[in-house]
Write a protein that binds this DNA or RNA. Structure first.
Length: 312
DNA sequence: CGAATTTGACCCGCGC
DNA sequence: GCGCGGGTCAAATTCG
């Protein structure tokens, strides 16, 4: 079986190591590592709840809100056609966030407005957790209970060059499903945060195009601390994050700007991976394009604070 | 023994 | 309206 992600407590999980995606890994896969950010990814951060200065947000705010349909389609499109992503540039990946269908305010709202919004979209789903939606086996196959409508929450996908599927991100996840992915020999795994109050989910799959690339998609925001970062550290992490991020961003877009909030869920992993990058889940495949000149900052995303911590 | 994972079935939404 | 594929559930199984 596989080692459970996040199963290892923060003990050996220094904020630095855990959130560092740079290919620092002992066995980083040969090629380069690091990851790259581009406009989209930054926008995503914002969309996902990481506040970016307005100007920045605006600058990177090309993340149009997507209605559920688009969202889903884009997302699926990207994944099913992950080739596009991977193909874009074997070294580059991107991320994106999809809008929250049920949330009129849309992702944008939650992003820059206020910290507490984190729950705005990620909380409403009374749909699950309680299993409300669903038990079906317990009912006669003929009288199955209808599930509640699925409520999509903002998503944030990352492409990571890694040999392991399970990337440490400081949270504990419970696998609740696995599905074969069309056009891909690799299955997609579904995980849910083990925190009962947390509705965050994530999907993990490998790119059919490049098996070394792991695509991790997060949905929702954590409402608790990560295992890796039991408490505090927010400031420092923030600072660190901003400090490390800004350069990269400014490098590409607008110097002087800085991130204000934490980082998205997971972007980490402790094992072998050579690089990771966010994927724009909300963008159409056709728009996926490699970043012109990806920064090679190894610490680019080191020291990140998961969204969930922002509420602290 | 409790927790996590596996796995098949079922539901839902979308495209045709 | 139908079929397909994604996403989720939960019983069974495995693991610590």
């Amino acid at each position: 079986m596989e080692d459970k992600e996040g199963s290892n407590p923060g003990a050996e999980f220094t904020s630095e190591s855990s959130w560092t995606l740079s290919g620092g890994g002992p066995d980083s896969v040969s090629n380069g590592l690091n990851y790259f950010f581009d406009r989209e990814s930054t926008g995503i951060l914002s969309e996902f709840g990481w506040d970016l200065p307005p100007d920045h947000a605006d600058e990177f705010g090309r993340f149009a809100e997507l209605d559920r349909t688009e969202t889903r389609r884009e997302l699926e499109g990207i994944f099913s056609g992950s080739q596009s992503c991977a193909a874009a540039d074997d070294q580059v990946a991107r991320c994106s966030v999809s809008g929250t269908p049920s949330n009129p305010g849309g992702p944008a709202g939650m992003s820059t407005s206020n910290p507490s919004v984190s729950s705005s979209s990620s909380e409403d789903p009374p749909e699950k957790s309680t299993g409300s939606g669903g038990k079906q086996s317990e009912i006669p196959s003929k009288v199955k209970k209808k599930r509640q409508k699925r409520i999509r929450q903002p998503r944030f996908a990352f492409m990571t060059k890694s040999e392991v599927d399970h990337l440490e991100d400081g949270y504990r996840w419970r696998k609740y499903g696995q599905k074969a992915v069309k056009n891909s020999p690799f299955p997609r795994s579904y995980y849910r945060c083990t925190n009962s109050k947390c509705t965050v989910k994530k999907r993990v799959e490998r790119s059919s195009e490049d098996p070394t690339i792991v695509i991790t998609t997060y949905e929702g925001q954590h409402c608790h601390h990560s295992v890796a970062f039991p408490r505090g550290g927010l400031i420092s992490h923030e600072a660190a994050f901003a400090g490390q991020f800004t350069p990269a961003i400014s490098q590409l877009y607008n110097p002087g700007s800085q991130l204000h909030r934490e980082i998205p869920p997971s972007i980490t992993q402790s094992q072998s991976h050579s690089h990771q990058a966010p994927i724009d889940v909300g963008e159409s495949r056709s728009e996926l394009k490699p970043t012109s000149e990806p920064p090679t900052d190894e610490g680019l995303l080191g020291d990140i604070v998961p969204p969930g911590m922002r509420n602290r």
